[in-house]
């Protein structure tokens, strides 16, 4: 008999094999493009979940880190004349920029809770978007373009797919590590009752800020990858309010505070959104569909597909 652990391990191996084989099985760049964006959002949603899913602090300001990562990559590559695949050596720097921004951001926002925290994250998000519009080093409203990558067109999407897949694997691994660690336990205790956790000696601010910075670093990393994939960043695309809403929807759809939930949510929502955007007769429908899906999730599967599905399976047994 294969136990639950065996089934999980088998499922994970199959999933990894399918993810690795995807661009080989579907070499059409248009299809690989779906895969690249799916992996970008698997990373972003998992990173968001590492902080918001485990701590209960719903951040609607993670686009700050996504955009900052993109701009950090663009500015560093431009100012230091880095070209070709060497730009990807800048990814740790982009992660550091995201984490560094998260520290003062968190020191302000994490003093408050619930809806007040959400409002502050939105306010800080708009400050960053405005800065991107108004500073000269960010290129103003024109934004930045990425230096040319000398990759052949036939392998361009595939290479980006594997880079994004590596980021996604890193994000899921981090999520898994945090979930299993005593650090993650304290983070989840904060989610349930922060005052009580503090009363038991949990250094709440330190724990929250560390998770916020780690989550920000990952989000900035994938923002940098995204910048190079789409070749440009502008204030309204790097600091896009829809980014946070999409990531939140993905995580809630799959399962808030779980490891697999954000992955499933991103794999369902992102390709669906991309497909809708390519249908001329459905122009603009993706936002409406996202809104409807959000409502359905909140009303009917508030805990997300993974926890609710798991409960149904247990009941059937």
């Amino acid at each position: 008999m294969i136990g639950e652990r065996g089934a999980k391990a088998g499922g994970l191996v199959l999933l990894v094999a399918a993810a690795v084989a995807f661009p080989l099985a579907f070499p059409d760049p248009a299809v690989t493009n779906y895969g690249v964006f799916a992996m970008i959002f698997v990373t972003a949603a998992s990173a968001w979940n590492v902080f918001s899913g485990y701590s209960g602090y719903i951040s609607l300001g993670h686009a700050v880190f996504f955009g900052s990562g993109a701009y950090a990559m663009g500015i560093a590559a431009r100012d230091w004349n880095i070209t070709g695949a060497a730009v990807f050596e800048l990814l740790p720097l982009c992660a550091a920029v995201g984490a560094a921004i998260a520290v003062p951001f968190g020191l302000i926002a994490l003093r408050v809770r619930r809806h007040t925290f959400i409002v502050i994250t939105i306010a800080i998000f708009f400050i960053f978007q405005l800065m991107a519009f108004n500073f000269s080093f960010t290129g103003g409203s024109a934004g930045l373009s990425s230096p040319f990558l000398t990759w052949q067109e036939s392998v361009y999407d595939t290479r980006f797919y594997y880079i994004a897949l590596a980021c996604a694997a890193g994000a899921v691994a981090l999520s898994w590590l945090v979930r299993r660690s005593s650090f993650g336990l304290r983070l989840r205790a904060i989610r349930d009752d922060e005052d009580r956790a503090s009363g038991l000696g949990v250094r709440a601010m330190r724990v929250k800020l560390s998770a916020f910075a780690a989550s920000a670093g990952l989000t900035a990393t994938i923002g940098a990858v995204w910048f190079y994939y789409v070749n440009q960043v502008q204030p309204q695309t790097g600091f896009d309010p829809l980014f946070d809403l999409t990531v939140v929807l993905m995580t809630f759809l799959g399962g808030y505070g779980t490891i697999a939930g954000p992955v499933l949510g991103a794999l369902l929502v992102e390709p669906g959104t991309l497909w809708l955007n390519t249908q001329p007769q459905l122009a603009g429908a993706s936002e409406i569909v996202l809104g409807v899906v959000f409502l359905v999730v909140v009303l009917f599967v508030p805990r997300g597909i993974i926890p609710t599905g798991g409960e149904w399976i247990r009941r059937l047994r």
Partner: peptide, 26 residues
């Protein structure tokens, strides 16, 4: 409260304050 707890005073509450979504062992 955390310092008091570390100093050696534990307390429970009139209305229990457990971490409901963590397991009993957690």
């Amino acid at each position: 409260p955390g310092t008091v707890f570390a100093a050696g005073i534990g307390r429970t509450f009139q209305l229990t304050r457990i971490f409901a979504r963590l397991t009993v062992e957690e």
